[in-house]
């Protein structure tokens, strides 16, 4: 093994006039790939309330509340503050009602703002839905 003093200098000087590899992040953003696991979102018209997602979620981030048994009205709450973005719910869902979007900058100052609520009725025709959060 032979030692070469200043072995790194050519490489350093070569990069002096090249574009930096880093970007000015908050002002410039990199694109995420197509299958990125971002924030889980519910397409409530597809949900059949089988509760597979509730059962499999490792962070207990999904809750389904029964608002009224006769009207088949349900409320799903996705706690994004607990969500670990593993997309197990997407995989467990038999009707593909859940999917992950490409949003990753979801930090806020309160965990209450991270709650996503979906109110919907189960039958074929889609009921009213509201989303907060």
């Amino acid at each position: 093994m032979k030692l070469k003093p200043a072995a790194f200098i050519p490489e350093l000087l070569r990069h002096l006039f090249k574009r930096p590899a880093t970007i000015e992040y908050p002002f410039e953003k990199l694109k995420v790939p197509d299958d990125f696991r971002g924030t889980p979102v519910l397409k409530s018209e597809l949900c059949i309330v089988c509760r597979a997602c509730v059962r499999d979620c490792p962070a207990f981030a999904i809750e389904i509340e029964t608002l009224s048994e006769e009207e088949k009205k349900y409320k799903m709450t996705i706690h994004n503050d607990r969500c670990i973005h593993c997309a197990q719910c997407v995989e467990s869902c038999p009707t593909k009602a859940l999917f992950m979007n490409d949003e990753f900058e979801i930090a806020t100052d309160s965990r209450l703002k991270l709650k996503a609520e979906y109110t919907y009725t189960r039958p074929k025709k889609s009921g009213q839905q509201s989303q907060t959060g």
């Binding site: 990069h15 090249k18 930096p20 880093t22």
Partner: peptide, 12 residues
């Protein structure tokens, strides 16, 4: 200069 030698932006 140090940052540019390291292919970074440096103070911006």
């Amino acid at each position: 200069l140090y940052a540019r030698l390291q292919n970074r932006i440096g103070p911006a």
